[in-house]
Nucleic acid binder design. Structure first.
Length: 290
DNA sequence: CCGGTCACCTGAGTGC
DNA sequence: TGCACTCAGGTGACCG
């Protein structure tokens, strides 16, 4: 499901919903979703309080009291849902966080967020079961970050760093954009949209991009990600935020999922290729073969 | 280092 | 209706 803009949207929504909340009970229904141990997660997170929610690439990082961290990857179909405890449960819920009421109220007496009233459950739902939740202490988290944590965000990568990265690589540009160790957060949709905007064919060897092309790709990638965040990401099928609301950026897609339709720039027919094993959409006229 | 394929899963869409 | 088949926002392992 989610790439950087969708994960960023989920994180912002979760901030408003969970910060200051205490977990009364955590229940793992499907043990394989928690590689660090289902029982350990249930035990550690019981009575813990949410302090912050952040994003590292496509990972959601919850910081809790007692220096605990909960690191979640949604993979293709993972979702967090804000759920009233007495309502019927959705299907495919694999982890439930039973929450106490918020500890901090607004100075005027109202609650921080109209969605945050009363006892609630935070549900992790994932039909395809690819998502993963990891519960770490501070030290374990730092070790994980160093070992298999994501590379820099596109926002943290300067144009010159980006160009240097490309210049060293013989491989094709699209798989490079998707490599989370090099640049984190970019997935299939935004890679295709950025390559189209920069007029770069996805199979161009990365080191063959001229400095001008590389600069343009970097600029278009940041522009597209920023615009997508403003529209709360793209919903093509499964993606919804914690309040059950989808994004709107799918209406702005120029090429992704639009094979057979005319290119919005030149009118040529958009085609679908397979690059790096992923469906890849290009305008064959705007993005000529390298 | 690089590319291709499969595996992990369920469900939606399509065509017969 | 049903069935077979393809595809899906991600990633990691394995092979040549």
């Amino acid at each position: 499901m989610p790439e950087l803009p969708e994960v960023e949207t989920v994180v912002r929504d979760l901030c408003a919903l969970v910060i200051g909340r205490r977990i009364e009970r955590a229940v793992v229904g499907l043990a394989k979703m928690v590689p660090t141990g289902a029982a350990a997660l249930e035990q550690r997170l019981g009575e813990a309080v949410f302090r912050a929610v952040d994003r590292r690439g496509k990972f959601i990082v919850f910081s809790l009291s007692r220096n605990l961290r909960l690191v979640v990857h949604l993979k293709m179909t993972g979702q967090f849902l804000w759920h009233e405890a007495d309502q019927p449960q959705p299907d495919h819920v694999h982890v439930r966080f039973h929450l106490a009421g918020p500890e901090k109220a607004h100075p005027d007496g109202g609650l921080d967020c109209p969605f945050a009233e009363g006892p609630r459950e935070l549900l992790f739902r994932d039909p395809r079961q690819f998502g993963r939740l990891r519960c770490f202490t501070e030290a374990e988290y730092n070790a994980w970050l160093a070992e298999e944590g994501p590379g820099p965000d596109p926002y943290e990568l300067s144009v010159s760093d980006f160009r240097a990265l490309l210049a060293r690589r013989a491989g094709r540009i699209k798989p490079l954009l998707l490599d989370q160790r090099l640049i984190s957060g970019v997935g299939n949709i935004y890679a295709d949209e950025a390559l189209f905007a920069a007029r770069v064919h996805p199979m161009t060897p990365a080191r063959d991009l001229t400095p001008t092309r590389a600069r343009r790709l970097h600029r278009e990638l940041l522009r597209i990600l920023t615009e997508a965040i403003e529209l709360r990401g793209s919903t093509t099928r499964d993606y919804v935020g914690p309040r059950g609301i989808g994004g709107q950026y799918q209406n702005e897609h120029q090429v992704y999922g639009r094979d057979g339709q005319p290119c919005p720039v030149c009118g040529a027919r958009i085609i679908r290729l397979v690059v790096a094993g992923r469906g890849t959409f290009i305008c064959p006229r705007c993005q000529p073969q390298p």
